[in-house]
Amino acid sequence: MSDMILRPFSADDTAWLIERHQTLYRRDEGFDDTFGPLVADILADFDAGHDPLRERGWIAEQNGARLGSIFCVDAGGGTAKLRLFLLDPKARGKGLGKRLLAICMGFARQTGYRDMVLWTHESHRAACALYAAAGWRLTESKPVHSFGVDLVEQSWRIDL
């Protein structure tokens, strides 16, 4: 994926991000139609008031096709939060996830955050393995019923 570029998120990416999250999570996890609106709310909050010096989103693109995303947002108290980490299935297994995670964590470090947190589900095994390999620690795991399905929700943290 040497011709892959990582570029800043723009408002033009919003509809694509919502659709990809809704479609992929419905197909792969059985999520209901409440998931897309959650993604839309996250993006609306980001668009409405993010601090471009401390918060950023990236889109991975190849030959003009969007293949992934990752966001770093301020969680307060010197903590950054990783959000909206997504890889299109055709881009998985090629090192793109590792590259996106590295750019997001590097930005958080350079920006002066002391640590970083994220929220995910146990079923995202490849992503969880990537987090663990990068030094993240699982801090909480609990069964929940969200988006119409039973899940195991996880919280992860890393010192930067």
Rank of each mutant, 00 (worst) to 15 (best):
A134F: 05
R125Y: 10
D47H: 11
I70G: 06
L84D: 04
Q110T: 14
L130Q: 09
L96Y: 05
G93T: 03
P143R: 13
C104T: 13
Q154W: 07
A127C: 08
H124Y: 14
A80C: 06
V73N: 00
T120G: 15
L151N: 07
R83V: 05
G49N: 10
L53C: 09
E140G: 05
V39M: 06
G135F: 05
N63L: 05
G77L: 00
L53R: 15
A127N: 03
D47Q: 15
H124A: 14
G148C: 08
A102M: 09
A40Y: 04
F147M: 07
L53M: 12
L86F: 11
A129K: 14
A44I: 04
A108L: 06
S146D: 11
A65L: 08
L96Q: 03
D150M: 00
F71V: 00
E61I: 02
W136A: 10
W136R: 12
A91M: 04
K81A: 13
D74S: 01
H50F: 13
D115N: 10
A102N: 14
V117G: 03
A80L: 02
G93C: 02
I103K: 14
A129F: 04
T79I: 09
A91Y: 04
S123V: 07
G106Y: 13
G97Q: 09
A129S: 12
L96N: 03
R99V: 07
T79P: 00
D74Y: 02
L96V: 09
S69K: 02
A91T: 09
D41V: 02
D88L: 07
T120L: 08
L84I: 14
V152Q: 08
